[in-house]
Amino acid sequence: MVNLEIKIHELVFKNPVLTASGTCGFGEEIADFMDLSLLGGLVVKGTTLKHREGNAYPRMAETPSGMLNAVGLQNKGVDNFISNIYPRIKDLDTHIIVNVNGSTIDEYVALTERLNELDKIPAIELNISCPNVKEGGMAFGISCVSAEAVVKAVRKVYSKTLIVKLSPNVTNIADIAKAVEGQGADSVSLINTLLAMAVNAETRKPVLSTITGGLSGPAIKPIALRMVWQVYNAVKIPVIGMGGIMNATDAIEFMIAGASAVQVGTAIFIDPTIPVQIIDGIASYMERHKIQSINEIIGSLQC
């Protein structure tokens, strides 16, 4: 029997496979397809202090080996999460992590304070990298100064595991990672989507209502791998890797590059059973390579 357990800060995960925010709803939407308790963790849909309708349709464009989205954090707000959703999912036997968003630092703080009260939410993922909102979001994650400011403010009010989700739309992602580590982040997750666009040649119009959106899927995997490796080499806190992971081999590549855990996102749209297939595939890989503990492969890249 191989040991798939990994640790992010003080939190032990039964395996390194999490589902990414915005690709698994609140878990309930994919419960028909898999036993959610098999997952290492589940990062629920991006939550904001107040209800958000999100951006206008069309919000999606298929692209080679990937897709663009411009959902814009559509969600019913934290009150709805706490009163309606949390009671239904809190007893799932997996770590439920809430993805936290705000337009201002005060909003991030107020939202975090609400989530801090919830016993069964052991961690938050601070999203300073959403490319699809007009205010806040990625704006916080593209400069060290603003990233530091939001993490510092949230750290003051949050005692549990604080993961910061980084934007790839920067010159040097390692600098941002170091900046948030310096303010007390317990982990960084990367990458969020890459700012991108699609054009309809027939109509000469943008495909998305917002003109630009975020690119995800296998198209971005090599970029994500490179960034995970750069960040792993720059910080001491654990890195959670994501970006185009479609199978166990992809997941293992991220872990070799330095990720302690991975998130599976866009792949769920294609096949919601993929996260479980990845967990099984990692175990087979370890047996084949006679690896006892998954921790042996984290950052094991041989240059």
Binding site: G22, T23, C24, G25, E29, I30, D32, K45, G54, Y57, P58, R59, M60, A61, E62, M67, N69, V71, Q74, T266, I268, F269, P272
Partner: peptide, 15 residues
């Protein structure tokens, strides 16, 4: 409407 997932997680096909 254009959809990515078909089961309510991507929130792309909204009307």
């Amino acid at each position: 409407n254009m959809m990515a997932c078909g089961f309510g997680v991507c929130l792309c096909c909204v009307e």
